[in-house]
C-alpha cells in the first residue's frame, strides 16, 4: 500500500478514536491509542487542526480536549466510499 493511502488510513484512525470516545478525548490518550510516534502524531495532529477536521476545546479546569468538527465527521462518513472509489479507479 502506498504512503499516501496509509496517510488517509491514519487520518481515519485518529478521527475514529476521537469519535469512539464520545467525541472528546485528551491529546495524550489520543497519541497513545493512535499507535504513532510522538513526532508523527504531532504532524498529523497539526494537519488535522489546520484542515479543520478536529478542534481543541478547553474545559473549566483548563484541560484541553480534542473533538471532531462537522468536516471530521464527514470524512469518517465518506472514508470507505472514497477508498472504494480510489481502488476502483486505481488512482
Amino acid at each position: 500500500m502506498n504512503k499516501k493511502r496509509d496517510r488517509l488510513e491514519v487520518v481515519c484512525d485518529i478521527l475514529s478514536i476521537v469519535n469512539e470516545h464520545h467525541n472528546s478525548i485528551l491529546p495524550t490518550p489520543l497519541l497513545r491509542k493512535s499507535n504513532l510516534s510522538t513526532s508523527s502524531f504531532s504532524e498529523y495532529y497539526r494537519e488535522l487542526l489546520a484542515k479543520g477536521f478536529i478542534k481543541e476545546v478547553t474545559d473549566l479546569s483548563g484541560r484541553k480536549y480534542v473533538t471532531l468538527t462537522d468536516k471530521g465527521f464527514s470524512y469518517l462518513e465518506k472514508y470507505k466510499l472514497i477508498i472504494g472509489f480510489i481502488n476502483e479507479f486505481e488512482l
Binding site: Y75, K78, I82, F85, I86, L91
Partner: peptide, 17 residues
C-alpha cells in the same frame, strides 16, 4: 461529483483524475 472527495483528502490521484 468528485469534488468533495478531493477536498476532504487532497489525494493526488483524485486531483489528476
Amino acid at each position: 461529483r468528485t469534488k468533495e472527495s478531493y477536498e476532504l483528502t487532497k489525494y493526488p490521484g483524485i486531483k489528476y483524475f
